[in-house]
Amino acid sequence: MLGKLIKYDLKALCRFVLPLFAVLIGSSIALRICVEIFSFDGAGSNIIASILVFVIAFVYVISLLGCGFAVYIMIALNYHKSLMSDRGYFYLTLPVTHDMHLISKLLAGAAVIILSALAFVVSFLPLFVGNIALPDVLKFISDGWELIRTYMLAKNGVLIIILTVFVALFGSQIVIFFCITLGQLLPNHRILGAFLAFIGHLILSRTISSIFASIGFKNSLIGIYDMDILAETLSSVLLTTIIYYVVIYAIEYVATRLVLKYKLNIE
């Protein structure tokens, strides 16, 4: 059943985000073609060509930003429409558990986030291929990775990477689901309720993390001038921060599940 739920969640999400990815990559290709066709050397520039390039560049930038925001908006809308609006009358009477609904939405959302990241990277290729040498790009990536590995992943590198992927793919989605679900507890002010839940999440999580950070920072100052100690300290701070957020998201997941199970109140 989980596979079937994921299939339908992916369909619901992809019908919005795939056209956006197509526009992103298409506008990137179009931009490159235009730049290749028209020469912008000042005197010989054609005004129509300039406007055309400007419009395509504008579409590209908007869809680039859209890839980041629209994906999360679609994830939120899909969750709200499937479980909290009229469609909830159908989806919530399917013979599946609340966990399955949540996991399905998280996995489908994660797939779309990964797709958006890929679309983001692919959209750069038409713009830079031929302009930047591939070995230079690879060297840049490899140097960056070496820096991260040396200073941030000095200790528990694998664990940090796994948890970071978890937080990046699922954490933000869990917060969205949690806020929307809490919002439905205020029957006449669901959006306001979701917004207040989000503010509450921000205040609580940031306050607690600030308290921990201020305590931890005192101790980490000792020996900070030593590069090995600095690397180890950075790794520890990173790991602690990520674990902290994993715990927050786990609590919010459980709270979402409990509200769905015991306090569900769709209109």
């Binding site: 339908y8 619901a12 019908r15 009229d86 009358y89 159908f90 009477t93 013979p95 599946v96």
Partner: peptide, 21 residues
């Protein structure tokens, strides 16, 4: 009410609840 009850219950809500797309 749970997974087992939903397996044997066919529900027609008072409003259109199917994904309209």
């Amino acid at each position: 009410p749970g997974v087992n009850s939903k397996r044997i219950t066919s529900y027609l809500p008072e409003r259109c609840a199917l994904p309209d797309w």
